[in-house]
Structure formats: C-alpha cells, structure tokens
C-alpha cells in the first residue's frame, strides 16, 4: 500500500470515523488539516479540486482520492473479511447500517454541529426529534442483539458498521442527549472503547 493521506478536520465526526478505523487497523496516514470552523476551507476552490462536493474526509489510497466517511471505511475494509463480511447475508446487514449512518443518522451529526457551532439550544424541535429517533433505532437494534447474546451491530465481532455508527452514539452528549436514556448504546460504546487501538476525539472522554 502506498502512503495513506487523510484530509481531516479534528472536530468532524466523519473524519473521526476514518481516524478511528485507521488506528484500529494499525495503519498510519499523513494528516492534512482542513480548517472547517471558522475557515470554511471545505468550500474553497483548493479543497473542491480534491473533493468536488466538499465532502470530508478525503482518503488517498492506492493513488485514488476517496471522498466521504462511508466510502473511505469501505476502501480500508476491502479484503479484510473480519471488518467487511464476505457472506451475502452479513455483508447486506453491514451495507444496511452504512446506508443508515449516511442517511437518517446524519440528523445527529447536524444537531451536534448546530449546538457546537451555530448556537442551537436544547429546545425541542423537528430536527432534534429526528436525531433522537435515529439514535433510538440503533438503541433498539442493539437491545435486541443483546437478547441473543450479541454485542456488535452485525455478527460476532466489530465491523465497519460499528465504526460508521459509533461517533453519533459517543458524541450525543454534545447536543444534550444523555447516555442514561440509552443503556444498549452505552454497553456497546464501552465495547468499542475496549478495542485494541481505540482512539478518542474531542467530546469523547479519555479516561487515561
């Protein structure tokens, strides 16, 4: 594998997904910082040459620029069946949760961004409800998984599905959702934290 390069924003949870996965895989990437807040560099012409839609992060791998967290996770997981199962049924489940992370669960990332950078309060709103509803879908799934002895989103071990979903659960306190309401998420967050190579980002406590 040629040198990995990650165009990265320390405070962005999509970038964190990829940093976390790189670390769990024991891979190093040269990081190029993108100043999103307050710089807005993701919308500047220089970055748009690399990522035409302004998506973060961008992972350079094998001479390709891969834009967006789910795509970068898939590119890194390719050929690693422990992280991206090869059997159709489990592959389909991982695909389902990647789609969910890039779809309805975006509401949680938007709520976090609104609270951290745009002064949104903790008043009830349609977008807050949509974010809570998305978190609940993960909570309900993990509560059911637990009843059959499962700890992970799909199958018997962690997959890119877990990595894609993790930041929304670990960072929900940033927008005022307490972990007390989500016992299944809490247990799973502890399991992810215990993986060898786990790293934190601002907002996810490092207990030292």
């Amino acid at each position: 594998m040629s040198e990995l390069v990650l165009h990265d924003d320390e405070l962005d949870e999509d970038c964190y997904r990829v940093r976390l996965f790189l670390s769990l895989l024991g891979l190093q990437a040269r990081r190029v910082a993108v100043d999103v807040v307050p710089g807005g560099q993701q919308d500047g012409p220089a970055f748009r040459v690399i990522s035409p839609a302004g998506m973060l992060p961008v992972l350079h791998i094998d001479g390709q620029a891969v834009c967006g967290a789910e795509a970068a996770l898939l590119a890194l997981a390719h050929g690693r069946p422990a992280w991206l199962p090869e059997g159709r049924a489990e592959f389909a489940q991982v695909a389902h949760w990647l789609q969910f992370a890039g779809g309805p669960l975006r509401a949680a990332a938007r709520m976090r961004r609104a609270c951290l950078f745009e002064g949104a309060g903790d008043a009830q709103s349609d977008r807050r409800r949509a974010a809570v509803a998305a978190l609940r879908i993960v909570e309900d799934h993990l509560a059911h998984r637990r009843l059959e002895g499962g700890c992970w989103v799909v199958g018997e071990g962690p997959t890119v599905g877990d990595i894609a979903l993790f930041p929304a659960a670990a960072l929900c306190r940033d927008w005022g959702e307490e972990h007390a309401a989500y016992p299944a998420l809490r247990r799973w967050v502890r399991a992810v934290r215990a993986l060898p190579g786990f790293v934190t980002m601002p907002g996810i406590p490092d207990y030292g």
Binding site: G103, P104, A107, D126, R127, R129, A130, V132, A133, A134, R136, I137
Partner: peptide
Amino acid sequence: GQVFLAGSV
C-alpha cells in the same frame, strides 16, 4: 403529542 420519526427532516 411527542412523535419521534427518523428521516423526517
């Protein structure tokens, strides 16, 4: 009167 609907926004 509290409806939580994912994907609605």
